[in-house]
Amino acid sequence: MKPSKVKTIQVIDFNSVENHVRWINLNRLKNHDKRLYPAKAIILDFSQARFLKPYHIAPLACLIHEYQENGFTIKLHKASVEMNSYLESFGFDQFCKSLENDSFKVSDDKQTFPLWLISEARKEFYTREVQKYFENNHFWSQDLFVLGSSLAELMNNIFDHSKSKIPGYTFTQYNTRSKTIINCVCDFGIGIPTSVNNYLKSIGEHAMADDDALQQAFELKFSALTKPHNRGFGWDNIFNSIRSMNGKLHIISNHALYVMHDNGKITSHLMDINFPGTLVVITLYTRNLPKKEELSDELDLI
Protein backbone atom coordinates (compact mmCIF):
# COMPACT_ATOMS: atom_id res chain seq x y z
CA MET A 1 0.00 0.00 0.00
CA LYS A 2 1.33 3.43 -0.92
CA PRO A 3 1.93 5.77 2.02
CA SER A 4 -0.53 8.66 2.19
CA LYS A 5 0.68 12.03 0.99
CA VAL A 6 -1.73 13.70 3.35
CA LYS A 7 -0.88 14.18 7.00
CA THR A 8 -3.42 12.98 9.54
CA ILE A 9 -3.57 14.70 12.89
CA GLN A 10 -5.14 12.59 15.62
CA VAL A 11 -7.15 14.91 17.84
CA ILE A 12 -6.90 13.79 21.45
CA ASP A 13 -8.78 15.09 24.49
CA PHE A 14 -5.73 15.38 26.73
CA ASN A 15 -6.13 15.79 30.46
CA SER A 16 -2.43 16.46 31.00
CA VAL A 17 -1.32 19.99 30.13
CA GLU A 18 2.22 18.93 29.23
CA ASN A 19 1.07 16.13 26.90
CA HIS A 20 -1.36 18.53 25.28
CA VAL A 21 1.34 21.17 24.73
CA ARG A 22 3.68 18.53 23.32
CA TRP A 23 0.95 17.48 20.88
CA ILE A 24 0.32 21.10 19.81
CA ASN A 25 4.01 21.69 19.13
CA LEU A 26 4.38 18.44 17.22
CA ASN A 27 1.47 19.27 14.94
CA ARG A 28 2.19 22.90 14.19
CA LEU A 29 2.76 24.00 10.62
CA LYS A 30 6.42 24.79 11.27
CA ASN A 31 6.98 21.11 12.08
CA HIS A 32 5.13 19.86 9.02
CA ASP A 33 7.29 17.48 6.98
CA LYS A 34 6.70 18.55 3.38
CA ARG A 35 8.75 15.68 1.95
CA LEU A 36 6.79 13.06 3.84
CA TYR A 37 3.42 14.77 3.29
CA PRO A 38 3.64 16.80 0.07
CA ALA A 39 -0.13 17.34 -0.23
CA LYS A 40 -1.37 20.68 1.01
CA ALA A 41 -4.07 19.02 3.04
CA ILE A 42 -4.58 17.88 6.61
CA ILE A 43 -6.98 15.27 7.89
CA LEU A 44 -8.23 15.83 11.41
CA ASP A 45 -9.13 12.50 12.93
CA PHE A 46 -11.45 12.73 15.93
CA SER A 47 -11.88 9.00 16.43
CA GLN A 48 -9.71 9.02 19.58
CA ALA A 49 -11.43 12.03 21.15
CA ARG A 50 -14.35 11.60 23.54
CA PHE A 51 -14.92 14.74 25.61
CA LEU A 52 -13.46 17.81 23.97
CA LYS A 53 -13.39 20.94 26.08
CA PRO A 54 -12.82 24.59 25.14
CA TYR A 55 -9.12 24.20 26.03
CA HIS A 56 -8.86 21.53 23.32
CA ILE A 57 -10.92 23.42 20.74
CA ALA A 58 -9.35 26.93 20.94
CA PRO A 59 -5.69 25.82 20.43
CA LEU A 60 -6.84 23.39 17.73
CA ALA A 61 -8.43 26.36 15.95
CA CYS A 62 -5.12 28.28 16.15
CA LEU A 63 -3.35 25.23 14.74
CA ILE A 64 -5.83 24.89 11.85
CA HIS A 65 -5.66 28.63 11.17
CA GLU A 66 -1.90 28.37 10.57
CA TYR A 67 -2.41 25.63 8.00
CA GLN A 68 -5.36 27.34 6.29
CA GLU A 69 -3.49 30.60 6.02
CA ASN A 70 -0.77 28.73 4.16
CA GLY A 71 -3.13 27.23 1.61
CA PHE A 72 -3.86 23.86 3.24
CA THR A 73 -7.31 22.34 3.08
CA ILE A 74 -8.64 20.70 6.20
CA LYS A 75 -10.77 17.57 6.14
CA LEU A 76 -12.54 15.99 9.05
CA HIS A 77 -12.30 12.27 9.50
CA LYS A 78 -15.65 10.68 10.30
CA ALA A 79 -15.88 10.36 14.03
CA SER A 80 -18.69 9.05 16.20
CA VAL A 81 -22.21 10.36 15.63
CA GLU A 82 -21.98 12.22 18.94
CA MET A 83 -18.66 13.83 18.04
CA ASN A 84 -19.92 14.84 14.60
CA SER A 85 -22.99 16.44 16.04
CA TYR A 86 -20.92 18.20 18.72
CA LEU A 87 -18.52 19.63 16.10
CA GLU A 88 -21.39 20.69 13.88
CA SER A 89 -23.21 22.30 16.81
CA PHE A 90 -20.81 25.22 16.90
CA GLY A 91 -19.91 25.29 13.23
CA PHE A 92 -16.51 23.61 13.49
CA ASP A 93 -17.05 21.80 10.20
CA GLN A 94 -17.73 25.13 8.47
CA PHE A 95 -14.71 26.72 10.16
CA CYS A 96 -12.48 23.95 8.77
CA LYS A 97 -13.74 24.61 5.24
CA SER A 98 -12.61 28.20 5.04
CA LEU A 99 -11.24 31.05 7.09
CA GLU A 100 -13.52 33.32 5.11
CA ASN A 101 -16.53 31.68 6.67
CA ASP A 102 -17.94 34.28 8.98
CA SER A 103 -21.24 32.65 9.80
CA PHE A 104 -22.51 32.79 13.31
CA LYS A 105 -23.92 29.38 14.11
CA VAL A 106 -25.78 29.00 17.35
CA SER A 107 -26.07 25.47 18.70
CA ASP A 108 -29.53 23.97 19.15
CA ASP A 109 -28.91 23.08 22.79
CA LYS A 110 -27.42 26.55 23.44
CA GLN A 111 -24.54 24.99 25.39
CA THR A 112 -21.73 26.24 23.20
CA PHE A 113 -21.08 29.72 21.94
CA PRO A 114 -19.50 29.71 18.47
CA LEU A 115 -15.77 29.39 18.06
CA TRP A 116 -14.54 32.93 17.63
CA LEU A 117 -11.59 34.42 15.85
CA ILE A 118 -10.38 37.26 18.04
CA SER A 119 -10.15 40.40 15.99
CA GLU A 120 -9.51 43.90 17.23
CA ALA A 121 -12.67 45.18 15.55
CA ARG A 122 -15.01 42.55 16.99
CA LYS A 123 -13.58 41.76 20.42
CA GLU A 124 -16.14 43.90 22.27
CA PHE A 125 -18.96 42.37 20.26
CA TYR A 126 -17.91 38.86 21.29
CA THR A 127 -17.57 39.76 24.95
CA ARG A 128 -21.00 41.34 25.05
CA GLU A 129 -22.68 38.57 23.06
CA VAL A 130 -21.24 35.59 24.93
CA GLN A 131 -22.38 37.00 28.25
CA LYS A 132 -25.83 37.82 26.89
CA TYR A 133 -26.12 34.39 25.22
CA PHE A 134 -25.60 32.37 28.40
CA GLU A 135 -27.57 34.78 30.58
CA ASN A 136 -30.55 34.68 28.20
CA ASN A 137 -30.50 30.95 27.51
CA HIS A 138 -29.59 29.43 30.87
CA PHE A 139 -29.16 31.95 33.67
CA TRP A 140 -32.07 34.33 33.37
CA SER A 141 -31.73 35.96 36.77
CA GLN A 142 -27.98 35.52 37.26
CA ASP A 143 -25.13 37.85 36.49
CA LEU A 144 -22.31 36.68 34.21
CA PHE A 145 -20.39 39.92 34.58
CA VAL A 146 -17.31 37.93 35.64
CA LEU A 147 -17.22 36.18 32.25
CA GLY A 148 -17.75 39.34 30.19
CA SER A 149 -15.27 41.48 32.03
CA SER A 150 -12.56 38.78 32.28
CA LEU A 151 -12.87 38.07 28.57
CA ALA A 152 -12.57 41.76 27.75
CA GLU A 153 -9.36 41.96 29.80
CA LEU A 154 -7.91 38.87 28.13
CA MET A 155 -8.68 40.06 24.63
CA ASN A 156 -7.27 43.51 25.29
CA ASN A 157 -4.18 41.75 26.61
CA ILE A 158 -3.76 39.77 23.38
CA PHE A 159 -3.75 42.93 21.29
CA ASP A 160 -1.41 44.73 23.67
CA HIS A 161 1.20 42.07 24.27
CA SER A 162 1.02 38.84 22.32
CA LYS A 163 2.55 39.98 18.99
CA SER A 164 0.83 36.91 17.58
CA LYS A 165 1.31 36.28 13.87
CA ILE A 166 -2.09 34.62 13.73
CA PRO A 167 -5.12 35.92 15.59
CA GLY A 168 -6.21 34.12 18.71
CA TYR A 169 -9.36 32.07 19.19
CA THR A 170 -11.83 31.84 22.02
CA PHE A 171 -14.47 29.26 22.76
CA THR A 172 -17.02 29.00 25.56
CA GLN A 173 -19.07 26.02 26.62
CA TYR A 174 -21.64 25.35 29.33
CA ASN A 175 -21.46 21.86 30.78
CA THR A 176 -24.84 20.98 32.26
CA ARG A 177 -23.47 17.88 34.03
CA SER A 178 -20.67 19.60 35.94
CA LYS A 179 -22.64 22.89 36.03
CA THR A 180 -19.64 24.79 34.81
CA ILE A 181 -19.01 27.41 32.17
CA ILE A 182 -15.57 26.93 30.66
CA ASN A 183 -13.97 29.55 28.47
CA CYS A 184 -10.64 29.32 26.73
CA VAL A 185 -8.71 32.14 25.07
CA CYS A 186 -5.68 31.05 23.11
CA ASP A 187 -3.08 32.75 20.96
CA PHE A 188 0.16 31.64 19.35
CA GLY A 189 2.01 34.83 20.22
CA ILE A 190 5.36 35.29 21.92
CA GLY A 191 3.97 34.39 25.35
CA ILE A 192 3.75 36.51 28.49
CA PRO A 193 7.10 35.43 30.05
CA THR A 194 8.93 36.26 26.81
CA SER A 195 7.20 39.63 26.69
CA VAL A 196 8.24 40.37 30.30
CA ASN A 197 11.81 39.24 29.68
CA ASN A 198 12.07 41.29 26.49
CA TYR A 199 11.09 44.32 28.52
CA LEU A 200 13.53 43.51 31.35
CA LYS A 201 16.36 43.06 28.85
CA SER A 202 15.45 46.34 27.17
CA ILE A 203 16.04 48.17 30.46
CA GLY A 204 19.27 46.30 31.13
CA GLU A 205 17.91 43.84 33.69
CA HIS A 206 18.36 40.08 33.81
CA ALA A 207 15.75 37.76 32.36
CA MET A 208 13.70 35.66 34.78
CA ALA A 209 12.60 32.04 34.75
CA ASP A 210 9.25 31.79 32.92
CA ASP A 211 7.18 31.13 36.07
CA ASP A 212 8.70 34.14 37.84
CA ALA A 213 8.27 36.28 34.72
CA LEU A 214 4.61 35.29 34.50
CA GLN A 215 4.12 36.18 38.15
CA GLN A 216 5.82 39.51 37.45
CA ALA A 217 3.32 40.26 34.68
CA PHE A 218 0.49 39.88 37.18
CA GLU A 219 1.95 42.41 39.60
CA LEU A 220 -0.10 45.58 39.74
CA LYS A 221 1.00 48.16 37.21
CA PHE A 222 3.69 46.00 35.56
CA SER A 223 2.03 46.18 32.15
CA ALA A 224 1.79 49.94 32.62
CA LEU A 225 5.57 49.96 32.23
CA THR A 226 5.38 48.23 28.88
CA LYS A 227 2.25 49.90 27.47
CA PRO A 228 1.64 53.52 28.41
CA HIS A 229 -2.18 53.42 27.97
CA ASN A 230 -2.41 50.60 30.52
CA ARG A 231 -2.25 50.89 34.27
CA GLY A 232 -1.57 47.24 34.93
CA PHE A 233 -4.86 46.54 36.73
CA GLY A 234 -6.27 44.07 34.21
CA TRP A 235 -4.87 40.82 35.58
CA ASP A 236 -5.63 41.84 39.13
CA ASN A 237 -9.27 42.36 38.17
CA ILE A 238 -9.43 38.98 36.45
CA PHE A 239 -8.07 37.25 39.56
CA ASN A 240 -10.37 39.18 41.90
CA SER A 241 -13.49 38.58 39.82
CA ILE A 242 -12.89 34.85 39.38
CA ARG A 243 -11.79 34.39 43.00
CA SER A 244 -14.97 36.09 44.20
CA MET A 245 -16.99 33.40 42.36
CA ASN A 246 -14.77 30.55 43.65
CA GLY A 247 -13.87 29.87 40.04
CA LYS A 248 -10.66 28.45 38.59
CA LEU A 249 -8.10 30.02 36.32
CA HIS A 250 -5.34 28.26 34.38
CA ILE A 251 -2.69 30.25 32.52
CA ILE A 252 -0.19 28.45 30.34
CA SER A 253 2.43 30.55 28.65
CA ASN A 254 5.86 29.51 27.43
CA HIS A 255 7.24 27.17 30.11
CA ALA A 256 5.01 28.46 32.88
CA LEU A 257 1.83 26.87 34.20
CA TYR A 258 -0.03 29.06 36.67
CA VAL A 259 -3.21 27.92 38.39
CA MET A 260 -5.62 29.74 40.67
CA HIS A 261 -7.68 26.98 42.29
CA ASP A 262 -11.32 27.33 43.35
CA ASN A 263 -10.23 27.90 46.98
CA GLY A 264 -8.17 30.89 45.83
CA LYS A 265 -4.86 29.07 46.34
CA ILE A 266 -2.26 29.69 43.68
CA THR A 267 0.25 27.19 42.36
CA SER A 268 2.73 27.60 39.56
CA HIS A 269 5.52 25.58 38.07
CA LEU A 270 7.88 25.34 35.15
CA MET A 271 7.00 22.82 32.46
CA ASP A 272 9.70 21.04 30.52
CA ILE A 273 8.02 22.11 27.29
CA ASN A 274 7.29 25.51 25.75
CA PHE A 275 3.72 26.52 24.93
CA PRO A 276 3.95 28.74 21.85
CA GLY A 277 1.86 31.65 23.13
CA THR A 278 -0.71 31.97 25.87
CA LEU A 279 -3.63 29.77 26.76
CA VAL A 280 -6.04 30.92 29.46
CA VAL A 281 -8.88 28.79 30.80
CA ILE A 282 -11.61 30.20 33.02
CA THR A 283 -13.87 27.77 34.86
CA LEU A 284 -16.96 29.17 36.56
CA TYR A 285 -19.32 27.14 38.74
CA THR A 286 -22.80 28.30 37.86
CA ARG A 287 -24.10 27.75 41.43
CA ASN A 288 -21.82 30.62 42.51
CA LEU A 289 -23.10 33.19 40.02
CA PRO A 290 -24.71 36.17 41.77
CA LYS A 291 -28.27 37.30 41.21
CA LYS A 292 -28.65 40.05 38.66
CA GLU A 293 -30.43 43.16 39.80
CA GLU A 294 -30.09 46.73 38.66
CA LEU A 295 -29.67 49.27 41.42
CA SER A 296 -30.89 52.79 40.86
CA ASP A 297 -29.65 54.60 43.97
CA GLU A 298 -26.74 56.96 43.39
CA LEU A 299 -23.33 55.35 43.85
CA ASP A 300 -20.62 57.65 45.16
CA LEU A 301 -17.30 56.78 43.60
CA ILE A 302 -15.30 58.02 46.61
Binding site: D143, F145, V146, S149, L220, R231, F233, D236, N237, N240, S241, S244, P290, K292, E293, E294, L295, S296, D297, E298, L299, D300, L301, I302
Partner: peptide, 22 residues
Protein backbone atom coordinates in the same frame (compact mmCIF):
# COMPACT_ATOMS: atom_id res chain seq x y z
CA UNK B 1 -16.96 63.54 44.24
CA UNK B 2 -18.68 65.16 41.26
CA UNK B 3 -19.33 61.95 39.35
CA UNK B 4 -22.15 59.63 40.47
CA UNK B 5 -23.24 56.35 39.01
CA UNK B 6 -26.83 55.11 38.68
CA UNK B 7 -28.57 52.07 37.13
CA UNK B 8 -25.74 49.66 37.81
CA UNK B 9 -25.53 46.06 38.91
CA UNK B 10 -23.83 44.97 42.14
CA UNK B 11 -21.01 43.46 40.04
CA UNK B 12 -20.39 46.78 38.30
CA UNK B 13 -20.41 48.60 41.66
CA UNK B 14 -17.81 46.18 43.09
CA UNK B 15 -15.66 46.45 40.00
CA UNK B 16 -15.75 50.28 40.11
CA UNK B 17 -14.94 50.38 43.82
CA UNK B 18 -12.05 47.96 43.34
CA UNK B 19 -10.73 49.96 40.40
CA UNK B 20 -10.82 53.25 42.31
CA UNK B 21 -9.08 51.61 45.25
CA UNK B 22 -6.33 50.43 42.90
Amino acid sequence: TRVKIVDYTASIANFLKNYIQQ
